Simulated assay, not measured.
Amino acid sequence: MEPFQLRTVPVDNALLLLQSWCESDGLTAGFTARQAGNTALHVGDEHDTVINNRRRITDQLGWPFGAFTCAEQVHGNHVHVVTREDAGKGREVRQDAIQSTDAMITNETDLMLVMFFADCVPLYFYDPVTKSMGLAHAGWKGTVSEVAIRTVEKLSETYGAKPENIIGAIGPSIGSCCYEVDEFVLQHVRPLLEGTPLGNDFLEGVNIIQQYESNNRAFLDLKHLNRHLMIKAGILPSNIEISSWCTSCRTDIFFSHRKENGVTGRMMSWMGRKSR
């Protein structure tokens, strides 16, 4: 079953809820659809329009806008430990965001972690034992720099989270059906799969690299590559949900940087836990 369920009430502010995570512990987690509007400040839209989009989303979720906390993403693997003092960073001014960060973790309540996407892979982490959580942004550069593993390590180091207790989710992103890459990318991916037949272990026969021509180009499955890394970090395969949505195939629902030639908006992933 698709873990990210589309909700369209109201119709102009569509959200995809990570349904199974929104049923306990006061959690909310999910991903916005195109109908929610562009949520990023760096793509040229009017500042007030973006802020209004963000406010509508938090209003719909029943969260105060002051909880909205985001990072300036750089396609790296730095993990920032978000404290109460970070609450609201970047919500209205881009320069105020947590800088040079592609993953955030926290155990604070009433604080919403937010990241932005238009084909890259959103990664979600939650430990129900320590009540700590993480959100990561994994394009191909973040993936090969193992941001998924760094996030699990930081959750363990900071909050004592045990990888076998962590649940993970992989959200809507460009699928292997659409993500064609060249040898420059492939030479960074192959070392992650050493000892596996294109990553087939743990993956129920899914080929992460689908080589198809003699010119060293291939279709790459970034979602399952990140699943592979989550498992390598110690998360149990049965504890990982993965979305089937492809942002490039479904530009009626999502923004896609690749399909729209770089001229497009950004969806946001979010995660937070309300205090009782």
Rank of each mutant, 00 (worst) to 15 (best):
T101V: 07
D102G: 00
A87T: 15
N216G: 09
I231H: 09
I208P: 14
I231S: 04
L135W: 05
N226Y: 06
G234W: 05
M271T: 05
E164F: 07
S214V: 08
K232N: 04
E153I: 00
G175W: 00
F65A: 09
M271D: 01
V81N: 09
R266S: 15
Q60L: 09
A169N: 01
H78Q: 13
N77Y: 09
C120E: 15
N38R: 02
H224E: 12
G175F: 00
V144I: 13
E108S: 08
L18N: 07
N53H: 11
F125N: 10
T83F: 03
L192E: 02
A40T: 14
G142F: 04
R55P: 08
I98P: 07
P128R: 01
E204R: 09
D110L: 03
D127N: 06
Q99F: 07
R190V: 11
C177Y: 13
A103F: 04
D96Q: 09
T58P: 01
S275G: 12
M268C: 13
R94Q: 08
I98Y: 02
V114I: 12
R84M: 11
F125M: 07
N53E: 15
T247P: 03
G30T: 10
L113Y: 06
Q210D: 15
S243T: 04
Q5N: 10
F219D: 00
P197K: 08
S238A: 11
R250V: 07
H47R: 00
I105L: 12
M1R: 08
W270K: 11
Q19K: 10
E260W: 04
S238E: 15
T106R: 00
P191G: 06
L236M: 11
I231L: 12
M133H: 02
T106Y: 00
